[in-house]
Structure formats: structure tokens, C-alpha cells
Design a protein around this nucleic acid. Structure first.
Lengths: 65, 65
DNA sequence: TCAAAATGTAATATATATATTGCAAAAAGT
DNA sequence: ACTTTTTGCAATATATATATTACATTTTGA
């Protein structure tokens, strides 16, 4: 499913997908696919995204069902 | 670095690495390597481990430095 | 409107997570 | 002590995350 929380946090920081990708050390496509929920990112990548956006794993990647 | 938190949560549930692996749907080696900190697991695997052990991502995979 | 920036998408290539099998060492139970 | 269970480790195989490049579409701003 789509991960709207990452997108919101990214926009809060006024970053494009490409800018976030550069800060995190991956490509724009990877960020785009994660936001679309079409990827299963690695823990380290999740942690990098969290630290760049000032959020925790639970903030960005936890889904209640 | 070693992830002692997973091991503690696993032992609290009285599960061996092999038993946790079976519940989570991976092999024993994968669980063992994650506990040793030699792996970069996928988000989905992290989530499966969390749900099996009744913990959140932050509980088991967040590291302050 | 128009141009520029941002995002979606697709093909192929590469790196690495995970599986499989097997054996050795350590830990636990009796 | 001995047996069984658990864990570590290593080699090879496979699946998939991620990179790279390129182009199409959408969005934004002047």
C-alpha cells in the first residue's frame, strides 16, 4: 500500500524525491517506489530516511491493520 | 552491531531461533544473522518479527547513537 | 499558455538479502 | 558424562532491492 506518511514528512521538509534521495544516498526512483508502496526497503534505508526526516521507524513505517 | 533486543524478546516468548524463523517464514540462519547484526533485513521481515514478538519497530530496531 | 521541475514508469544491470545444505561448536537437559 | 537441542559458520544458489539510463506524464510557476 502507499506510504503517504513519508511523502508528508518529505514535503514538510520541502524536499523533492530527488533531494531526499540524495541526502539518503539512494536514487530518486527508490524513494518514489517506496512512497508508492511498491518496494520493500531495507532496514538501513528506512533508518536513513527516518533520520533525514526527523521521524522514527514507527512514525513512518508502522501500519496498524 | 548485535541486536540483543530481538534475542531478549524471542527468549521472553520461549522461542528458539528456528521456531521464530518458522513463525516468521524465513530460515534459522536469517534470524541468527539478524541477531548477530550481520544482516540488513527488509522492512517486511522486520514487521513480521515485530508482530510475532508483540513489539514495534522502534522497540526492536531503533538505535540511538 | 509555456517552460521547467517533479514524478511515474520501464528495461537492463548489479549488489545483496535470503535459501539451502551441511557440519562444528556450544548450551541445556537428564 | 552423555545426548539432544541450539547456535555459529561456510559454500553455493536464487530472489529481489537498488542503480542506471531514458522517456513520458503530471505539476508548478512565471
Amino acid at each position: 500500500m502507499k506510504n503517504i506518511k513519508i511523502k508528508v514528512a518529505r514535503v514538510e521538509h520541502d524536499l523533492s524525491q530527488a533531494e531526499l534521495a540524495k541526502k539518503v544516498g539512494v536514487t530518486r526512483q527508490t524513494i518514489g517506489l517506496i512512497e508508492q508502496g511498491k518496494y520493500n526497503p531495507s532496514l538501513q534505508l528506512c533508518l536513513s530516511i527516518c533520520k533525514t526526516l526527523g521521524k522514527t521507524l514507527d512514525d513512518l513505517f508502522w501500519e496498524e491493520e
